[in-house]
Amino acid sequence: MIIKAKPLPPFFFRCGAILIGWLLKRRFNKLVISDVDVRPDHSYLLMCNHFSFLDGILAYYLCAKVLKKKNVMKHLYIMSLKKQMQKNKWLKYCGSFSVDPGKRSIQESFDYAAEVLSTPGNVLLFYPQGNLESSHVRHIQFQDGLREIVPQVKGHCQLIWSSNLMEYFESTKPSIYFNLLDCGTSREFDFEALKQNVNTHHRLAIAKNIRFTKEP
C-alpha cells in the first residue's frame, strides 16, 4: 500500500515559496531560469535531473517562479521513496506520495501519479533517473516509470523538462541555471523521442553554461 499525499494549500505554498526564495538568494549567487511556454488548462509533469539533496527545494522554487506565477498551478505532488517518507512523516503534508521500487505496490504508485495528472492545475515533480548523479553527466538515463504513467493520464498534461546545472565561475557562491524544455503533451507522448529530445537539450544546456569551452 502506498502513502498518499496531502498537498499544501495554496496559501501555505506561497508562504513556503517566499521562505525558500529568501533562503536560496542568500545561499546562491544567481538563480537563472530560461523560460518556457506554459499551456493553460493542463496538468504539468515537471521532470528534472537528480543531482543533489537540494533538488526538491530547487524544484519548489521553479514551480513558484514558472507555474504558480503564471497562475496555472493548483497543487504540487512529489513522488518520493517510501523509506524516506517513513523516516520523514511530514513529507506527505508537502505533497509527497510513496514509491517502492521492486515491490508490487509500484504499480499503485504509477496509477496514483496518473490520477494526479488527470486533474488540470496539478503538478507532479518527477526524477526520471531514479538515482543521484552529477549534474554534468552527458547522458540522462531514464527509468521506465514514465512509460507506465503518461499513457494512463486522462485529459491534457504538459511535459516539462529542466536541466538544472550548478557553477561557481567568478563567485564564491554557486549559481543555479534552470534550462527548461517543453516536451509536448501526454497525447503526443513517445518515450523514445522524449529521451532523445531531453538528452540533446541537456548536452546543449551544459555547453551553454560552460561558456567558452568547446568540446570535440
Rank of each mutant, 00 (worst) to 15 (best):
Q158L: 03
Q158N: 04
L159F: 03
L159W: 03
I160L: 15
I160G: 11
W161Q: 00
S162Q: 05
S162P: 03
S162R: 06
S163I: 03
S163D: 06
N164P: 03
L165G: 06
L165P: 04
M166G: 06
M166K: 13
E167L: 08
F169C: 10
F169A: 12
F169R: 14
F169P: 01
E170R: 11
E170D: 13
E170W: 05
E170I: 12
S171K: 14
T172P: 01
K173H: 08
P174W: 01
P174H: 02
P174D: 02
P174R: 05
S175V: 11
I176E: 07
Y177E: 01
Y177V: 00
F178T: 09
N179L: 03
N179G: 10
L180N: 06
L180A: 05
L180I: 02
L180V: 02
L181F: 05
D182A: 09
D182C: 09
D182H: 08
D182Q: 07
C183N: 03
C183G: 02
T185C: 07
T185H: 02
S186E: 09
S186M: 10
R187A: 12
R187K: 15
E188C: 07
E188D: 14
E188H: 11
F189E: 09
F189Q: 09
F191I: 10
E192S: 11
A193S: 13
A193W: 00
L194M: 13
L194F: 04
L194D: 01
K195G: 00
K195Q: 10
N197D: 14
N197V: 08
N197H: 14
N197Q: 15
V198N: 04
V198W: 01
V198A: 09
N199K: 03
N199V: 05
N199D: 05
N199F: 00
N199R: 04
H202R: 14
H202Y: 12
H202W: 11
H202K: 11
R203H: 07
